[in-house]
Write a protein that binds this DNA or RNA. Structure first.
Lengths: 336, 336
DNA sequence: TTGTACGCGTTATCAC
DNA sequence: GTGATAACGCGTACAA
C-alpha cells in the first residue's frame, strides 16, 4: 500500500527522485540517495500501482488472450488440451517478459473493443478463427495482434506450423512401412489453411509413391470424441485400407477407440498416425505415432513476436514452426 | 477513446451528470438529459477506462487465478486437462458476473503480493496446493480467496469434492461386479485431503464387504503418464488381483496402457475404474468407467463464492460438489 | 542533482 | 436536477 509519496517523505526527497530511482535513471540521482531510497523501497515493500501508471502513460503491460470456441464438449474456452498447453506457454513467456495476461472469451467485435479499451490492453493473442469484423476492429484500433493457426488473408502477426511437411512426413512414413491405401481423417477442410496444408502433404506423399487418391479415403468429421469414435466404427467395417492418417491426435485416438471397440486391432490390422503429439498420444494404447509440434513453444513465440511489435512497433513475417515425426507403436510394417 | 469529459462537452452538461447517467442514478437526472446523454454515449462508442475507475475507487473487478504446477510434462500452468476445463468454467462465470480474469503463475508470497497490489485485484482463485506463506499473505492483505481442491487447515473459501463418496462408489461398484482384490493407485497421500478422502471411501467399501486391506495393493506414484505406464507394466506381472481403482483418470488411462502393452486385457482380465471423468476417460480403449465430477461447474461455483465474498463480504462454508459413477466398459462382471 | 506542478479519466462530496 | 472540484498514484516537463 505504500505509494511513491510515502517513500519520498520517508527518504526526505521528492517524488520525482523516487520515480527516477524506480526507473533506473541513476544518472540523475546521486549514488547515496539511490541506495537510501532502494533500502526504503525494500523495507516498505513498495509495489507500483499499475492502474495509475496506465492512466498516465500509454502502455498497460497487459496482453489479452481470446480463443475461439473449439470445445470438446460444451462451450467455454481452453477445454481442448491443445489450447491448455498453448496457454501454458503463453503465460510463462508473458510473465518472463514482464507482462500480465488477461484471458477472456469475446462474442463480437464490440466486446473486443470494450475489452481492449477498458484496460488499455497492449496487444492481443488470438487462438483459432474469428470473424472478419474482429480483424477490422483491431486494425482500426491499431492494436498489435498475433494469430496462432490463422487463416490466410488477414494482416497482423502470425504463428504458423509447417502443416504441409507434417502431412507429408506422416504419409511417407506409412508408405515406407508398406501401406498403399491410407485413409485421411480430418475436420472440415473448407477454407482451413491448417487442414488444407496437412492434406496437401498427404497428397504429395501419395503422388510421390505413384499412389492414386481415392475420394472415399477422405473422411471429414467434427472435432469431437464422439464423431471420432463413430468414424472408427464406420471404418471398422471397411477392409480396403491398411492405414489411417488423422490430422489431430484427438481424432486419431477416438478413431482408434472406435476401431478397437469393433474388434479391429491396432496396429496389427490397421496402422494409425496422429498429429500434434499432445498428452493423449502417449496415453493411447498403443502409444500413437504422430507428427510432433512444439505447442508450448508456439505460445512463447507468439508472445515474443507480440511484445516485439508492442515495444518496437515492428511487424514481422509469419513465423512457421517445424514439425517432426515421433515414432511410437501405432504403425505396423507390412509386406504385400 | 471518448472520455466522460468529451461526452459532457458534446451534451453541454457536466461530467457529474454523465457519470450519474452511466451509473443509472436516474433519480438525479431529468429524463430528457438521460436520453440525450445515452444517445451520445451510443454514438461515440464510449467505453469506461477501468484504470481510472480502479484508481479512484476500490474495486478493480479483476479476479486473479494462480495455479500450482502439476504439469504433465514440464513446467507451466494449466497443462493438465483438468485445469484446462476448470479454467474454462472460471472464465465463463467470471465474464457472466462482469469481472475480468488475470492469469498468472506465482513463485512466492512476495510475487503474489505484487500481483495483487499491482492491479488492486479483488479476489483470488487458487488451484491446487500452495505454501503456507501464500495464505498468510492473503490473510494479511484481507483479500478474499477461494481454493479448489485445498488441503484442510487453511482459512478462506473452499470448493471441495465428495472424494470419500467417490472412492466408496467406485470400490463398491467393483465389489458388486464380483471383484474382491482391488489395487488402489494414487498420487502420494501424505497430507492430501483429496487422495486421502478417496482412499477412505475405498477402505469403507472394502470393510463393508468384509474384505481385508492388503498393503501391497496400495500403489503411490507420481502424477505423470510415464509413472502410470510403468505402474501398469509392473502390475501386469501380478496375478493376485482382478481390479484397479485409480484415483485420477490420467493414472487409470496410463496404467491401462501399461497393462495392455504387456498383453493383459482390459476388462477381460483386469477391470479398471478411474476418477474425474475428463475427456481422456471417454477416449480410453475401452472407454473408462469412472467417478464423475463436474469440473467446469466447480470453476463456476468458485467464482460465484468469490464474488459473493467480494461484494457482500460474506465468508461461506466450504462447498462440496457431489460425485456420480459413470458406467462405461472398463469393468467386467466376474463370478468366482 | 532535486523539487514543483500538471494531467491522465473517473468518482464522490458538496454547493447551487 | 445540475455543476465545480478534490482526490486516486504516477510520470514528466520544466524550473531551480
Amino acid at each position: 500500500m505504500a505509494t511513491i509519496r510515502d517513500i519520498a517523505e520517508r527518504a526526505g526527497v521528492s517524488m520525482t527522485t523516487v520515480s527516477n530511482v524506480l526507473h533506473g535513471r541513476s544518472s540523475r540521482v546521486s549514488a547515496e540517495t539511490v541506495e537510501c531510497i532502494e533500502e526504503i523501497i525494500r523495507e516498505t515493500g513498495y509495489t507500483p500501482n499499475m492502474n495509475a501508471r496506465v492512466l498516465v502513460g500509454s502502455s498497460s503491460r497487459i496482453i489479452g488472450v481470446i480463443s475461439s470456441m473449439v470445445p470438446i464438449s460444451s462451450g467455454g474456452i481452453f477445454q481442448d488440451p491443445f489450447h491448455a498447453v498453448l496457454l501454458s506457454g503463453i503465460e510463462k513467456c508473458t510473465r518472463d517478459l514482464g507482462y500480465f495476461l488477461m484471458v477472456r472469451s469475446v462474442e463480437d467485435a464490440n466486446e473486443l473493443e470494450s475489452l481492449l479499451t477498458n484496460w488499455n490492453i497492449d496487444g492481443l493473442i488470438m487462438i483459432g478463427f474469428f470473424p472478419e469484423s474482429f480483424y477490422a476492429q483491431l486494425e482500426e484500433m491499431r492494436k498489435p495482434y498475433v494469430q496462432i493457426d490463422s487463416s490466410l488473408r488477414n494482416r497482423g502477426l502470425k504463428i504458423w506450423l509447417d502443416d504441409e511437411t507434417g502431412g507429408y512426413l506422416a504419409t511417407r512414413y506409412l508408405i515406407e512401412n508398406g501401406h498403399r491405401r491410407i485413409v485421411f481423417v480430418c475436420t472440415p477442410m473448407q477454407g482451413s489453411r491448417v487442414v488444407g496444408g496437412r492434406h496437401n502433404g498427404y497428397l504429395r506423399a501419395l503422388a510421390e509413391a505413384g499412389i492414386e487418391e481415392k475420394p472415399e479415403d477422405l473422411c471429414e468429421i467434427g472435432y469431437t470424441i464422439e464423431a471420432g469414435i463413430e468414424m472408427g466404427e464406420k471404418l471398422a467395417e471397411r477392409h480396403d485400407f491398411t492405414a489411417i492418417f488423422a490430422c489431430a491426435d484427438l481424432l486419431a485416438c477416438s478413431v482408434c477407440t472406435g476401431l478397437m471397440m469393433h474388434g479391429r486391432r491396432v496396429p496389427d490390422e490397421i496402422s494409425i498416425v496422429g498429429y500434434d503429439d499432445t498428452a493423449m498420444a502417449r496415453l493411447n494404447c498403443p502409444p500413437l505415432t504422430c507428427v510432433h509440434q512444439d505447442v508450448a513453444g508456439r505460445g512463447s513465440k507468439a508472445v515474443e513476436m507480440l511484445v516485439d511489435a508492442i515495444e518496437k512497433g515492428e511487424g514481422s513475417e509469419p513465423y512457421t514452426f517445424p514439425v517432426t515425426l515421433v515414432e511410437r507403436q501405432s504403425v505396423k510394417r507390412i509386406t504385400l
